[in-house]
């Protein structure tokens, strides 16, 4: 009798894992994705039209126009992972939010659109007022989940019009972390590798962080992301950005400043 129960449990577990695996590789279809966009924008009269499919390293997407912007729906989970609202770019004039007010708007939006936002170890890794000239300005808020010392691809970006308080754009990614969070290459060694990419420069400013990145479609890797600013040569800033695989030390990106 015990054997039958154990075998039954194993069979059920196998069935569940097979179904979940199938769900993760079966696209939800354009129509279901469109319904999710409708729920996300929550504006009944908006015209939602399928534009194209996009295949990125961090996911595959159906892209829709929403009349006043765009929405990107994850093909397999159905989650709206990016949205923009072009009409929110318009500057309404004198009304101006301060940082605290803008952060409150962005935080509320993140909690509304990103399940589990308050329960995750989300760190505000970037924030500030960005001046875009005649278009006006926007407050940008970037939260990323931190596991040990590594920033993960689980993130929320909310850009808010500094005049109207309207959300201009949103990015919200939530993935299971599948790679190691223990670097094989130390911080100091990573900096040495990065410096070799820009030999003979005199570094006057630098930054380094551990980041889990999608380095190939669906493949996560723990990396070191390093910037090196060097004294100018021929009136051009030296140095740039280097991304290193934190397990192997392989240079994945070496991009000089323009």
């Amino acid at each position: 009798m015990k054997k039958i129960i154990i075998v039954s449990i194993l069979c059920i577990a196998l069935m569940i894992s097979s179904v979940s695996a199938l769900a993760a590789t079966t696209s939800i279809g354009v129509d279901a994705a469109k319904e999710n966009v409708q729920k996300f924008v929550n504006t009944p009269l908006v015209q939602i039209q399928y534009q194209e499919s996009k295949y990125l390293d961090l996911g595959d997407y159906y892209v829709f126009s929403t009349g006043n912007g765009q929405a990107y729906v994850n093909m397999y989970t159905g989650v709206v992972e990016r949205a923009s609202f072009t009409d929110a770019l318009e500057s309404p004039g004198n009304l101006r939010l301060d940082f605290i007010q803008a952060k409150a708007i962005a935080g509320k939006y993140a909690e509304e659109k990103y399940p589990g936002f308050s329960d995750m170890n989300m760190q505000l890794t970037g924030s500030g007022l960005k001046n875009h000239g005649d278009v006006g300005s926007e407050y940008s808020f970037i939260w990323r989940e931190k596991i040990k010392d590594a920033l993960t691809p689980n993130m929320v970006v909310v850009n808010v019009n500094s005049g109207s308080g309207k959300v201009i754009s949103y990015i919200g990614i939530q993935r299971e972390i599948t790679c190691s969070t223990e670097p094989g290459i130390s911080r100091d060694d990573a900096i040495k590798i990065a410096e070799k990419q820009f030999p003979e420069i005199k570094v006057f400013d630098s930054s380094i962080e551990q980041s889990i990145e999608y380095t190939k479609p669906g493949i996560q890797s723990l990396t070191w992301v390093i910037t090196l600013k060097g004294e100018p040569d021929d009136h051009v800033l030296q140095g740039g950005l280097v991304v290193i695989d934190a397990l192997t030390g392989k240079v994945l990106v070496s991009a000089p400043y323009l």
């Binding site: 990125l56 390293d57 961090l58 990016r82 970037g126 970037i142 990323r144 920033l151 691809p153 993130m155 970006v157 990015i171 990614i173 980041s211 990145e213 999608y214 380095t215 990396t223 992301v225 950005l241 991304v243 994945l252 990106v253």
Partner: peptide, 8 residues
């Protein structure tokens, strides 16, 4: 921000 390695 999200298409080009690294994130940001």
């Amino acid at each position: 921000y999200w298409q080009q390695l690294p994130i940001g």
